[in-house]
Nucleic acid binder design. Structure first.
Lengths: 229, 229
DNA sequence: ACATGTGAAGTTATTCACAGCC
DNA sequence: GGCTGTGAATAACTTCACATGT
């Protein structure tokens, strides 16, 4: 629902025809899987292999690669190294991109840890918390600042991505403040939808809802086929 | 990709026509928003209000409620209390449902905390970790067991939902073991897709991919309209 | 007047299936 | 023979728009 528009708006100078959320998500997964391939393995890969690894169909993989203009060779598949680079060409900002995290509670700390070892193209470079006890400290290599200083730090460092791990009642306020400081994309872990203008992008990471989905389908899905030999 | 089938398979005796993943997700959000409504507010709500709160359209909300057979009254909207109950009738297991978490690292602990105060219909009742240091302890009200005892505990307690927060290389193995013990639905935080048979449901919570999506759209989305007065 | 319920239309996403190539 | 690239077909999802109800 967020990008209600075709999501290929007048995208400044960027060439690629606006990819959709799902395409970007799949490309991200493809890249990660390719990077984890044992270096001893074949330098090419088939669409159906990548499909199986990513729980997709081969046709879907081929179409995704088509949309980023990457082309393989008949009967030999796709060059892994080149494909990784091509996906990077789409996903990564050439200049690099930095993120800020607001809310250094349990979840915030866990995420800082999660992202410590991270590709240089996209790093969390600052964390913020309203609790003065927490600021000044360095958690998982990331310095924690008082929330009040967030706007300056974000502006000075040109941070464009925000991770929200504050309690639900503060989420909207914090997000608006981050937006005002120049942040354009939000990863929201607070269990409440953010209301931001259309020129901001919000990805809801709604753990509660995901848990309820899993519970529902755990009950509802067809049971295992009875195995009679 | 997961439910490739229409997702309304021969669902045992359950009556509701198999709802889709998206519908379930939205219903979960609706319920949460309704529950958070100040008790002083009007006892009815309009589709367009719920739509605005959940970042949806009014038509979408009405259609979702239609699919669970809930009906409002013209010109007055939907009864909030009844609607909460109706969504519960779809989402909640009447008998209740329990979950197990594997991998008591930073993220696992944060999630245990997140779910501590939780509706009785769906609780994490046991955590498991391979590190013997961690077992026996109680973290956020939840007892931690050695991973080796997971199958017995899961079977004895009839746990059907699994949360996976182990490192990526162990995720597949742990998931298979949980499946063998009777778990049917998985919430996977490990950054690698799980390969499980069709009678299991897997929800991937791919934080890395979400972060890359946000970064991409933060760059790509149309900029704020220039404000000239 | 204004809201719901819903068939029909529209849009987006996925899969099919096959021509062309190694 | 087996794989890629892709138009065409299909399926899934969302929105429109209006009859109906209060």
């Amino acid at each position: 629902m967020n990008p209600k528009q075709p999501l290929n708006p007048p995208t400044q100078q960027r060439a690629l025809p606006g990819l959709t959320e799902k395409q970007i998500a799949r490309l991200s997964v493809y890249r990660r899987l390719l990077q984890e391939l044992p270096s001893a393995s074949r330098p090419e890969i088939y669409s159906h292999d990548l499909a199986e690894m990513s729980r997709n169909t081969a046709a879907q993989v081929r179409r995704d690669l088509m949309t980023i203009g990457f082309t393989g060779s008949s009967a030999r598949g796709y060059q892994v190294e080149q494909l990784i680079a091509a996906i990077g060409g789409t996903l990564d900002a050439p200049e690099g991109q930095t993120a800020a995290l607001c809310g250094v509670g349990n979840l915030g700390r866990a995420l800082l840890d999660y992202f410590t070892i991270w590709r240089p193209q996209l790093r969390i470079v600052a964390a913020f918390d309203i609790d003065p006890e927490k600021s000044g400290r360095v958690i998982h290599r990331c310095r924690v600042w008082p929330l009040a200083e967030m706007p300056q730090v974000v502006r000075e460092q040109g941070i464009t991505v925000g991770v929200i791990t504050v309690p639900a009642p503060s989420a909207q306020r914090v997000a608006e403040s981050m937006l005002g400081a120049g942040i354009r994309g939000f990863l929201n872990f607070a269990p409440t939808p953010l209301h931001l203008p259309a020129h901001a992008y919000v990805e809801e990471m709604d753990i509660t809802t995901s848990m309820e989905k899993v519970a529902y389908f755990a009950r509802t899905l067809a049971p295992a086929p009875v195995e009679e030999s």
